[in-house]
Computed example of a mutant assay.
Amino acid sequence: MFGASWVTKKLGRKISMLTGGLVFLAGAIINAAAQNIAMLIIGRILLGIGVGFANQAVPLYLSEMAPYRLRGSIYVIFQLYITIDILIANVVNYLTAKIKGDHGWRVSLGGAAVPAFFIVISSFLYVFRLLKTQVV
């Protein structure tokens, strides 16, 4: 995503990860609470922006923080986790399709809030720690 690279360049990778996580979380919440097709479209757009931020900022952060000899391995592990997440999402979609009462799609789309929550909390704690060390 073009905007994610600009935010990362101007504000840094940690703020970019936090921004992406918040947008990702907002998209998941909007999708789970959708009352019409417009809400679903807006939620999906926000999910795409959030994932774009994460997929742009996280590998950059990992490559900067990882020891030189481990960079390739750590990046491959990141890609492996992305692939495992895709598998988990498909399993969740399969299982939630069997929920009676036509609410399975809400659970499925709202489930995106789980990884978004982890991104927000972990990046917030890291940014908070960074700000705390700069103030002292």
Rank of each mutant, 00 (worst) to 15 (best):
residue 1 M to D: 10
residue 3 G to I: 14
residue 6 W to Q: 13
residue 6 W to R: 14
residue 6 W to I: 14
residue 6 W to S: 06
residue 7 V to D: 04
residue 11 L to E: 02
residue 11 L to P: 00
residue 13 R to S: 09
residue 13 R to N: 08
residue 14 K to W: 09
residue 16 S to P: 07
residue 17 M to K: 03
residue 21 G to P: 01
residue 21 G to K: 12
residue 21 G to R: 07
residue 22 L to G: 14
residue 23 V to E: 07
residue 23 V to H: 08
residue 23 V to R: 09
residue 24 F to I: 04
residue 25 L to H: 04
residue 25 L to A: 14
residue 26 A to H: 02
residue 28 A to Y: 07
residue 28 A to C: 07
residue 29 I to A: 14
residue 30 I to S: 06
residue 30 I to E: 02
residue 31 N to E: 08
residue 35 Q to E: 09
residue 35 Q to V: 07
residue 35 Q to I: 10
residue 35 Q to S: 11
residue 38 A to N: 03
residue 38 A to W: 15
residue 39 M to D: 08
residue 40 L to T: 02
residue 41 I to M: 04
residue 41 I to S: 06
residue 42 I to C: 05
residue 42 I to H: 01
residue 42 I to D: 01
residue 45 I to W: 07
residue 47 L to W: 01
residue 47 L to Y: 00
residue 49 I to A: 05
residue 50 G to K: 05
residue 51 V to H: 00
residue 55 N to I: 00
residue 56 Q to L: 09
residue 61 Y to T: 01
residue 64 E to Q: 14
residue 65 M to P: 00
residue 66 A to S: 15
residue 67 P to Q: 10
residue 68 Y to V: 02
residue 68 Y to D: 09
residue 69 R to C: 00
residue 70 L to W: 01
residue 70 L to S: 05
residue 71 R to F: 01
residue 71 R to I: 11
residue 74 I to F: 02
residue 74 I to W: 03
residue 75 Y to M: 15
residue 77 I to K: 09
residue 77 I to G: 03
residue 79 Q to H: 03
residue 79 Q to W: 00
residue 79 Q to N: 13
residue 81 Y to V: 10
residue 81 Y to D: 01
residue 81 Y to A: 10
residue 83 T to E: 04
residue 83 T to I: 05
residue 84 I to V: 15
residue 84 I to Y: 05
residue 84 I to F: 12
residue 86 I to F: 10
residue 86 I to Q: 11
residue 89 A to Q: 10
residue 89 A to C: 04
residue 91 V to S: 03
residue 91 V to A: 11
residue 91 V to C: 02
residue 92 V to E: 05
residue 94 Y to T: 12
residue 95 L to Q: 14
residue 95 L to V: 08
residue 97 A to T: 08
residue 100 K to T: 10
residue 100 K to V: 10
residue 100 K to N: 10
residue 101 G to A: 08
residue 101 G to I: 04
residue 102 D to L: 04
residue 102 D to Q: 11
residue 102 D to I: 00
residue 102 D to P: 00
residue 103 H to V: 13
residue 103 H to G: 01
residue 108 S to G: 11
residue 108 S to D: 04
residue 109 L to E: 09
residue 111 G to N: 12
residue 111 G to F: 13
residue 111 G to A: 09
residue 113 A to V: 03
residue 117 F to I: 14
residue 118 F to I: 12
residue 118 F to D: 07
residue 119 I to A: 14
residue 120 V to G: 08
residue 121 I to E: 06
residue 123 S to L: 11
residue 123 S to C: 12
residue 124 F to W: 13
residue 124 F to E: 10
residue 124 F to S: 15
residue 126 Y to I: 15
residue 127 V to D: 12
residue 127 V to G: 10
residue 127 V to W: 12
residue 128 F to V: 11
residue 129 R to Y: 14
residue 129 R to L: 14
residue 130 L to E: 15
residue 131 L to R: 12
residue 132 K to D: 10
residue 132 K to I: 05
residue 132 K to E: 10
residue 133 T to A: 15
residue 136 V to K: 15
residue 136 V to W: 08
residue 136 V to C: 07
